[in-house]
């Protein structure tokens, strides 16, 4: 009984992290039609920036997290401007932007290694101490992540569904020409979408930097998991992506309980293949 509760809680924690990651991918995809391979690397940059401000300069964790979000957002806007914008409307845009964001990933990873070195780093926790949920013990920091993720997702959903600026992102995603005709600044919308997604990645990184080690390659495993999430959920809608993130998180936690750490990635992957054979646009996706 106890192990099931513990697995549930750790699954929800994983799901929260995947939801924060994958929602950024989804925002960029629905607005720009670009799959951002550098998303995990932006998360890593957020963690390092948070560490530099919090530990390196000794300014404390909250300013650190804010700095992580800001630096990641800035990097995202720069990536959009230099590596995405020149290729809008070209024939092979999807393929080309996969390659340019891969290039961005390599530049960020190797750059981080040059700047911060190979030594493992870690952030302090937001709140020290543990909390017990129905007999399962997790740290307060992890509990805060679990609580924070739905709030952030809800704010993001409110932004894209209810504000004019958020709606303009969706309009641009649906039809750029019509959006431009009704007076939406399309390049500005692209920059907003990319910056917003990068900020989400930076936040995830800064939060994750307290419970895992910060390394230049810390973003690649969450990126692959976020990929599995968007394959399950389809890239098209925020709600489906977030839902899929929690499903995958819980599934992963239970698979680890039953199959062990080694075989879990395979089981997840086989499941993903099975889903794609029957639903080529994702489990909840539409054509």
């Amino acid at each position: 009984m106890n192990s099931i509760v513990a697995t549930l809680v750790s699954g929800i924690l994983l799901g929260s992290l995947y939801a924060l990651m994958a929602s950024g991918l989804s925002v960029v995809w629905t607005t720009l039609g670009v799959f951002n391979f550098a998303h995990g690397a932006l998360m890593m940059i957020g963690a390092y920036a948070a560490w530099t401000v919090s530990e390196g300069m000794g300014l404390g964790l909250l300013p650190g997290i804010l700095a992580g979000v800001a630096v990641a957002a800035l990097c995202g806007i720069v990536i959009e401007y230099l590596l995405i914008r020149p290729f809008y409307g070209t024939r092979h845009m999807l393929l080309v932007t996969v390659m340019t964001t891969l290039a961005a990933l390599i530049i960020l990873e190797k750059g981080a290694q040059l700047i911060w070195g190979a030594k493992l780093k870690q952030l302090p926790r937001l709140v020290t101490g543990d909390v017990s949920i129905f007999g399962a013990t997790i740290s307060w920091h992890e509990a805060i992540i679990i609580l924070l993720a739905p709030i952030v997702l809800l704010l993001l959903w409110r932004f894209t569904a209810m504000t004019n600026r958020g709606r303009s992102l969706r309009a641009v995603g649906q039809n750029q020409d019509s959006a431009a005709l009704i007076g939406i600044d399309v390049p500005y919308a692209f920059a907003i979408a990319f910056g917003l997604a990068a900020a989400l990645a930076g936040l995830t990184g800064a939060l994750l930097g307290s419970i895992r080690f910060i390394t230049p390659v810390m973003g690649s495993e969450p990126l692959v998991k976020a990929m599995i999430v968007v394959i399950f959920g389809g890239l098209g809608s925020l709600g489906a992506t977030a839902g899929a993130a929690y499903v995958i998180g819980l599934l992963e936690a239970f698979l680890i309980l039953w199959l062990g750490l080694y075989w879990t990635p395979f089981a997840l992957f086989l499941l993903m293949i099975a889903v794609l054979i029957f639903r080529p646009n994702g489990l909840f996706g539409r054509a």
């Binding site: 995809w29 999807l94 990929m227 394959i231 993903m272 293949i273 794609l276 080529p280």
Partner: peptide, 15 residues
């Protein structure tokens, strides 16, 4: 072989 566009990238990459 049955997939389209970005899903081909994602699956081959995940492999």
């Amino acid at each position: 072989a049955r997939l389209k566009g970005i899903y081909v990238v994602l699956v081959t990459f995940a492999v």
